[in-house]
Design a protein around this nucleic acid. Structure first.
Lengths: 256, 256
DNA sequence: GGACGATTTATACAGGTGTTTGAATCATTT
DNA sequence: AAATGATTCAAACACCTGTATAAATCGTCC
């Protein structure tokens, strides 16, 4: 009777979103069960289907939520570093990205979701590209272009962006391995993360400077990786033939 | 009867290993079903349990098989490039790695398995570390050390290795995204892969040279990533507390 | 106070999962 | 030819998965 609202203080819907964000980012869409999400969120099994129609519907809303959060954080950092030289802006950007992926206090789920979506695409990949990869790519493209002293359309820009992003992501991916190879209770401290960020920044700045010095070899860049000339995507490019997903995820014709 | 052996020319066991290697590398341990493997291999559902006791047993043998294959290939390339300067050896190494991950003709499954194991560790992670990550790390550690003009124990070596490996891996991971953003029938041609390898090599060589020029900041490297002083692992380091695996994979106390 | 829509709940369903089982088949040896 | 051990097979098991359903509960407005 007069019990003080046992577990609930937030709306169920929001609790589901928060819990699902963490679980999806940490374990991937396929490796998280609806039951697990609901149990952690203190909700009934049917809650997901009631509030989001699908497991995939929940996933989509999670993506939109964490994408907005991350983009807000990135814009904030970039604007704060606006007056600084581009080198310093790149350093700040790398530090932010790395802390979001390695520091358990930061809890930036979007980068982890993007990494997982790259390895095992779900029907939400297009959404991830639109909300996460494209904005990040454009931001970093401008920065790299400035460092190269060229325009964002220069074919050398995209590979440099990928090199920086790849280094950051790899440190996130190696976390389980580092945990196995390090002492038993290992975890990254903020100081260690700063050290790694420093390494990546200096390593990358040197690489970018070297590429800035030389003329770009004509076709070193796959044309597909160059910015497409379209202004804004009306409809995303349709799936390339076969969908490499199992039926587990498929089963949806089109979205409303 | 003189029938010409309908589908079978290799032993079932070997066919299962080959099929499983490709499927596990392409889709990950959890996203491949025993039924799928057996169907593609033209074997009965019970074949996996008969020949390998477990799905995990099959996975373990796959790992050992593809690890040997990759290590053979790497040793071969390294020895062929032995007389060349270390810069050229690094270029050859990057080219080999990248082709193995991006060229569908090459079919080097080990790197893909390693990548998946980093994102979603299975009980075979220790095996992967021992057979794949450690040998690769040592080989590249020696190369990077030579380029830095220092010893493999220098704290600057490991981050450089991770930077190079991270760039290579990221191009593999971005494949689905590149396919979505490029033209419909997109795939990497050997020439494009060579171009990417060239970029990574020049980018990384510049980064390494920059780090070679300056004194290393004392504690830029997490101590866990430095080579452990033990000579040879008698028994691999025991699991660090909780196993972050679902029951799906767990359910095994110890191995015989 | 009663009615009504929104939410939560317990339960069930259909399909997929890894694994087991006992009989059938094959190859080889005696 | 008979026997024996290894391999294959179809069927079934127990469990987990996402989803659906219908009743129960809650909050709110007439």
């Amino acid at each position: 009777m007069g019990t003080t609202t046992p577990i609930v203080d937030t709306e169920t819907r929001q609790r589901l979103l928060n819990v699902a964000a963490e679980l999806f980012a940490e374990q991937g869409f396929n490796n998280v069960t609806v039951r697990e999400i609901c149990q952690v969120a203190g909700a009934n099994v049917a809650a997901v289907n009631y509030h989001f129609r699908d497991k995939l519907g929940l996933y989509r809303e999670v993506v939109e939520m964490v994408a907005d959060a991350l983009n807000r954080a990135k814009v904030e950092v970039i604007e704060a570093a606006e007056p600084l030289p581009p080198e310093e802006r790149l350093r700040a950007y790398i530090r932010l990205t790395l802390h979001g992926m390695l520091d358990p206090k930061e809890e930036s789920w979007m980068d982890k979701l993007m990494a997982r979506e790259m390895m095992d695409p779900t029907p939400a990949l297009d959404l991830i590209i639109e909300k996460g990869i494209k904005p990040t790519g454009e931001r970093m493209g401008r920065m790299v272009a400035e460092l190269l002293g060229t325009s964002p359309d220069d074919p050398r820009v995209m590979p440099c962006f990928l090199s920086v992003q790849g280094q950051c992501l790899f440190y996130h991916m190696s976390k389980p391995v580092a945990a196995r190879m390090g002492p038993p209770g290992f975890h990254y401290t903020p100081e260690m993360i700063d050290g790694i960020a420093h390494h990546i920044a200096e390593f990358s700045l040197a690489g970018i400077r070297a590429l800035a010095a030389q003329e770009p070899p004509a076709d070193a860049v796959p044309p597909c990786l160059k910015r497409k000339p379209d202004g804004e995507a009306g409809s995303p490019p349709r799936h390339s033939g076969r969908n490499r997903l199992k039926q587990k995820i498929a089963g949806e014709g089109e979205v409303s």
